[in-house]
């Protein structure tokens, strides 16, 4: 199962072809010129490097937040709230200290802590991590909306939180994200703990038989995943938006998109670097498709949906089959 080189290239290439073919059919049926739509999508989506890298950063990190736990066999749908807490704590730390480094560290820690909480509830109380995570997503959504509009509103711009002070704003956030991905790749594939995580994900029984606890790996992977999402939130606020608006439009949805990006990157940190760039380009380009062709924004969303599904489904399907197969053999 680990020999994925040629097969996985073939699979991705096939998926790409199918994705664009289906997209073309959709476009033709709806009466749009597919060549024009695709050329706008790609020209504008990948034409503005600075924009593309900034947009990719939090998505890359929420991609990791999904995939690292997934490797250890946990479904982390809480990248959303882990990113929220990273963003708000980083914003507040930057606001009070005026410097970026403590903001990044505390933002990351906040995300990690939230990830760990979800994992702890599963390991020690046997509470399904998906349910906990979904509930926490909304809890933190409203809690942060409250903080931003009632406690930390910018007196000059009432629909925004206090801004990140100029001294704490940072550039090059994408490279921090890439560095994180490479570190995670190293940890997963070249360290003992990474090996244990992967074994626990493939077969918890084997892990136990080999003398280490898969539960501990659940905790570790969620800690690492949550940290990535928290870092994503911190970098987003410190390097791109500098504030959170009261509608939370800047931070909402990034965690959910991260799930698609993780699957698209085949749960491989290096793959996720590229899948986050690929997705961000599509999202950016989609906005220009509306502008240039007059198509409703839902068209671009549909197209992106088709592409992502075609690319992610074969992999998700295999993951699922493996899980089912495992249950079967365990029983």
């Amino acid at each position: 199962m680990l020999s994925v080189d040629r097969e996985s290239i073939l699979e991705v290439l096939m998926s790409l072809i199918i994705a664009f073919a289906v997209g073309t059919v959709v476009l033709v049926v709806l009466g749009y010129d597919p060549i024009r739509v695709y050329s706008i999508l790609f020209k504008y989506g990948y034409g503005n490097t600075d924009y593309l890298l900034k947009k990719s950063t939090p998505l890359l990190l929420t991609g990791l937040a999904f995939s690292v736990p997934a490797i250890a066999g946990v479904f982390n749908i809480g990248g959303e709230s882990q990113l929220y807490v990273g963003a708000i704590t980083a914003l507040l730390v930057a606001h009070y200290t005026g410097s970026a480094i403590p903001a990044v560290i505390i933002g990351t820690a906040a995300g990690a802590l939230l990830g760990l909480t979800i994992a702890a509830l599963r390991v020690y109380r046997n509470i399904n991590e998906v349910i906990t995570a979904i509930m926490l997503n909304w809890t933190f959504f409203y809690f942060i909306a409250y903080l931003v509009s009632a406690k930390y509103a910018n007196p000059k711009v009432p629909h925004e939180s206090v801004p990140v002070p100029p001294g704490a704003r940072i550039g090059g956030i994408f490279f921090i994200a890439v560095l994180t991905a490479l570190t995670y790749y190293y940890v997963l594939h070249f360290t003992e703990i990474g090996y244990k995580m992967r074994v626990s994900g493939v077969s918890p029984q084997s892990a136990r038989y080999a003398g280490f606890s898969p539960e501990k790996m659940v905790l570790t992977s969620m800690l690492l995943g949550g940290a990535a999402a928290g870092l994503g939130g911190a970098l987003l606020v410190l390097g791109a938006t500098y504030t959170i608006d009261t509608t939370l439009s800047a931070i909402y949805g990034i965690g959910f998109t991260g799930i698609g990006i993780g699957l698209l990157g085949r749960n491989n940190p290096v793959g996720i670097i590229f899948s986050s760039l690929f997705m961000s380009g599509l999202i950016i380009g989609g906005q220009w498709v509306e502008l240039k062709t007059g198509a409703p924004p839902e068209l671009a969303d549909t197209l992106i949906g088709v592409i992502v599904i075609a690319l992610a489904v074969p992999y998700a399907y295999r993951l699922l089959m493996k899980k089912v197969g495992q249950r079967g053999s365990a029983a």
Binding site: D5, R6, I9, R266
Partner: peptide
């Protein structure tokens, strides 16, 4: 898996 990463990188490029 390591090769897989490189392969994916190529596709991305």
């Amino acid at each position: 898996m390591r090769k897989g990463g490189i392969a994916l990188a190529l596709i991305g490029l």
